[in-house]
């Protein structure tokens, strides 16, 4: 059982490197704090209201179709790797049926005109 020490060290380094740089910059720079500088930017005016309003996500239909195809990709990777060890005609036929079912769904969504930015 490999322990993947390198992976853990890489992960820690990747997280801490930006923070170390921020600390390093603290030694060099000089801050002149001012409440007006810490107001969030809205093209020069005082911000109106909070940014976290109820936001209409225009692409939620895409998000649903995305989930389906993401899982499809998950199933296709193992199939692609062992393809040459299987009976090729059978393996190919099965994958075509599997992809075709999802493509039918995609075409249906397309024809129903839900694949648009609404």
């Amino acid at each position: 059982m490999p322990l993947y020490v390198d992976l853990v060290v890489f992960l820690l380094a990747g997280f801490t490197f930006p923070l170390v740089n921020v600390l390093l910059s603290k030694l060099v720079r000089r801050d002149y704090p001012d409440p007006l500088k810490e107001v969030s930017y809205e093209s020069g005016i005082v911000p109106i209201g909070d940014a976290r309003v109820r936001y209409h996500i225009h692409y939620y239909i895409f998000a649903l179709v995305f989930l389906v195809f993401d899982v499809e990709g998950l199933f296709l990777f193992p199939w692609a790797v062992v393809f040459k060890q299987l009976n090729p005609a059978v393996a190919f036929g099965e994958a075509v049926v599997f992809i075709a079912m999802l493509v039918v769904g995609l075409v249906y969504a397309w024809k129903k005109k839900v694949l648009t930015w609404i």
């Binding site: 390093l24 910059s25 720079r29 000089r30 500088k37 810490e38 107001v39 969030s40």
Partner: peptide
């Protein structure tokens, strides 16, 4: 490195 750091409140 030498630039001022603003933190949105």
């Amino acid at each position: 490195l030498a630039k001022e750091d603003f933190v949105p409140q």
